[in-house]
Amino acid sequence: MTNLPKCENKKLGLLIDLDICVGCHACVVSCKEWNSSGDTKQLSDINAHQKEPIGTFLNHVHSFEKENKENNESEPFYFPKSCLHCEDAPCVTVCPTGASYKRPEDGIVLVNEEDCMGCGLCAWACPYGARELDLLSGVMKKCTLCVDRIDNHDLPEEDRVPACVKSCPTGARSFGDFNDPNSKVSKIAKEREGVDLMPEMKTKPVNKYLLPRIKSNFDKEFNEEENSDLNVSGFLSWVDKALDKL
């Protein structure tokens, strides 16, 4: 049923730290690799090595620059975006075939590919662009939080995390239960004031983002020092003046 369940036990999701992310796309690549090799239909590429390649990805890294109002300098940051596994997921309720559902036990939003008719309405309903219709398999694709890893008891415990989390070289991504106030993700999100994307859409995303910290004004001070008169006295002052005259 595409009615939304109450997820009172667990709310699994990702905590993404934009202050740490270096935009390397390792999460994008490992996501595509893992989700093309499991039981689901693969994430296809069309014209992969020709002009105008087009393909399906469940995770994207956008690059932005933000103006620092104090010194007018731009500060780049990288923004990985995948499904936020919203509590009030509009993509689930619009689904006409019942292919989309939210798992009651942990709140993961999934697509049953056996039922999907590829109408694309769920992709329209998602304000974040988290769903993509795979052009070859004709079914809707989205982040599953790698259910086939986290549910797989054949894997060693440390590998039972989404592929993107496992592959992140800087540790910018963490995975955990946001319903448990004592989980690592809940604690960090609380301490560093994790935010929701587009709160005005009232989707109540589970995934939280930690915004880039405001950089100190070190750069500005450094530059100013370099061009101003040196603040020295005695012998060094004499050297300074002598060098200026040269």
């Binding site: 049923m1 009615n3 006409p96 075939t97």
Partner: peptide, 8 residues
């Protein structure tokens, strides 16, 4: 299957 989810 699109006839099935009229509840939501």
């Amino acid at each position: 299957k699109s006839f099935s989810q009229w509840r939501s």
